[in-house]
Design a protein around this nucleic acid. Structure first.
Lengths: 145, 145
DNA sequence: GTACTTGGCTTTTTTAGAGAGCATTGATCC
DNA sequence: GGATCAATGCTCTCTAAAAAAGCCAAGTAC
């Protein structure tokens, strides 16, 4: 299950990416727009800043802004930064492999083989979907409606 | 992330399915073989029994046995029974759709569209992989080694 | 200096994971 | 056919992590 933290992170970054002028936005503004608990969002944006995805400025007229272009930030990256590996079990992760304690033997672990397939399929989608893609598909959808 | 509960459930069911004679096994035997905390496994097997996947017999010489053949039990089914919907967000689930509280508008929710793709890819793999498939791929692997 | 912002720390609430203890059932022994 | 032992079934409690909220410090434009 995607944590709320990751969900909020994606929503916040989309909100920032959607701003056409690409100026900085305050936490309060983002929190209100996306209905995210304000203090929780603070911690999330801080994480994203420490990971080099966001830039922050304090003081009056401060706020957060993207450090990369929306097409360079994939949903997969965001989820990895906030929730950790995409794989649903540690032993199926490519970026952060860890043998699971329960398994007697990783190479022959029956669950691992299936979950690696799931991880690969998931990563293929999430790493190839950028904030730009998400925003574009969103506005296409609005056309249809 | 797959819960430990679901992971244990899959392991326990594989263990039961692997028994060629298809007789019943006691909790203790399964717990020891798969290194699962015994009392935790009790709760898990009870769930699986209540969902019609296992049969249980009490008393001396009691234990658990599969109610369906291993080829009829998919990994997807097991995970759904224990962890709930495969989708990583409630609003992307086909079997248990729920609008997420955070979203202002589900149809145009930007995250939802991506997560539906992930869900579909995941379900495609997990619903088409049965206990039998897992056991078979396991023994193939042993050959290679 | 003042008003408005992020930053860091602490506390509370909720949920998953794990374990303990007793009740219930049923085969088997005598 | 009743006692007994070995198994599942159930309820309660504890711990750790995620989620959320509150408080005060630090920084910056005006």
């Amino acid at each position: 299950m995607l944590s709320k933290k990751a969900k909020y992170a994606i929503k916040a970054l989309i909100t920032l990416a959607r701003k056409p002028e690409r100026g900085s936005m305050g936490i309060g503004e983002i929190a209100e727009e996306e209905r995210i608990p304000r203090k929780f969002l603070e911690a999330i944006l801080l994480d994203l800043k420490n990971q080099g995805i966001l830039y922050s400025k304090r003081g009056k007229a401060g706020g957060y802004a993207l450090l990369k272009s929306p097409s360079e930030i994939s949903i997969g990256l965001i989820i990895r930064v906030i929730d950790g590996p995409l794989a649903q079990v540690p032993c199926a992760s490519k970026t952060a492999y860890q043998p699971c304690l329960e398994c007697k033997d990783a190479p022959t672990c029956s669950i691992r083989l299936v979950m690696i397939k799931v991880r690969d399929a998931t990563a293929d989608i999430l790493d190839n979907t950028s904030l730009r893609d998400v925003i574009d598909s969103e506005s296409e959808l609005l056309y249809v409606i």
